[in-house]
């Protein structure tokens, strides 16, 4: 039998396009035509959305999705943000503007600030379940390189909901406008030319955040590794002995909960390092991939109601005895 090198060499020789060589070039007419055709279509829900870190992951699918949905927009960035402005726009002397947005609802403030800095922009806020009816104008196909950056996390605020982007105002051509649609879940940034239709809100759920499939599932319901053992609203110290007795390994999900605790939480971080015995457990999940690994959903203090369920667990999970 030929050795594997020979086989690969033979296979290589069969390649229509020599390995290592590109097929086409992105600057070819065909490539540009393809890109233009794509750009004419509305980009995906999160096209220009800053990449969400784990903090963004709010567990919606755990129990009553509708119940928890209210908490979806909550992020630790907003929790801490007592003195942080909802947006910041700064202009450098070379015409480069940095925009940082932390609160997606302050549409007017952001629009005004951009106008002051001569950034031709329209900003609209789309409430959940709605989006501005499209098309609103002609999309510019030939976007100058460096005109704007894709929204990115604000440095030092990795866990926040906010994003920032860099815009080079020198590169705008006359008649071009930046059309922003911001919502709680996504930000769309499209460069358009000519007249722009006002935002007419229409029902649209394609911009909603889709729940991320979790690697964990509830451990305390029937069939779970903690079936029959309630952990909710107990302290870590009360829960640990039973977990030890069952030979389970533990990881902690530190939850972020807004002061008014509307139901729902953010995942601040996950750690295997033990937390205080007086911390509060709100639920236990088990790893789907690693049997015997339990994830405790914890906070460092007690809340008046279980943030996981927006109230008592019993109101959401009905167990037949």
């Amino acid at each position: 039998m030929k050795n594997s090198d020979d086989i690969d060499v033979i296979t290589r020789a069969l390649a229509r396009v020599e390995p290592g060589r590109p097929g086409g070039n992105a600057s070819d007419a065909g490539a540009r035509a393809l890109l233009a055709a794509l750009a004419a279509e509305r980009p995906g829900p999160s096209a220009a959305r800053p990449r969400r870190r784990s903090a963004r992951r709010l567990v919606v699918g755990l129990a009553g999705a509708g119940l928890l949905a209210a908490g979806v927009a909550v992020g630790p960035g907003l929790l801490k943000g007592g003195g942080t402005p909802s947006y910041a726009v700064t202009k450098e002397s070379d015409g480069v503007v940095y925009v940082q947005v932390r609160d997606f609802r302050d549409r007017a403030g952001l629009a005004k600030r951009l106008e002051e800095l001569n950034v031709p922009a329209i900003v609209d806020y789309a409430p959940p379940g709605k989006w501005c009816e499209e098309p609103r104008g002609t999309h510019v196909q030939d976007i100058p390189r460096g005109l704007y950056s894709v929204p990115e996390n604000i440095p030092g605020e990795q866990d926040s909901q906010g994003w920032q982007m860099r815009i080079d105002t020198k590169l705008f051509k006359p008649g071009q406008t930046f059309v922003w649609t911001i919502s709680d879940h996504s930000t769309s940034t499209i460069l358009m030319s000519g007249p722009i239709a006002p935002c007419v809100l229409v029902p649209d759920t394609s911009h909603e955040v889709r729940p991320i499939k979790s690697d964990y599932r509830l451990a305390t319901t029937k069939g779970g590794s903690l079936a029959g053992f309630r952990v909710d609203e107990k302290t870590v110290g009360e829960v640990l002995p039973e977990l030890d007795r069952r030979g389970l390994r533990i990881t902690y999900l530190i939850m972020g909960v807004t002061p008014d605790n509307p139901g729902g939480y953010a995942e601040l971080r996950t750690q295997t390092r033990p937390v205080g015995d007086d911390w509060i457990v709100w639920e236990a999940e088990e790893s789907i991939r690693e049997p015997g690994l339990i994830r405790l959903l914890v906070t460092d203090k007690r809340f008046d109601r279980n943030p996981v369920y927006g109230g008592p667990r019993d109101s959401v999970i009905k167990e037949r005895s």
């Binding site: 390649a15 229509r16 396009v17 060589r21 590109p22 097929g23 086409g24 393809l34 890109l35 055709a37 794509l38 279509e41 980009p43 995906g44 829900p45 999160s46 096209a47 220009a48 959305r49 996504s186």
Partner: peptide
């Protein structure tokens, strides 16, 4: 290049390229 190597006809290769990028565009996030 991938599409050209794998498809028997250039038309198929164009379709694969176009559809691949269309999907990427729609699922940018």
């Amino acid at each position: 290049a991938y599409a050209a190597r794998r498809c028997d006809s250039p038309q198929d290769a164009v379709d694969v390229v176009a559809e691949t990028f269309a999907i990427a565009w729609r699922r940018m996030g």
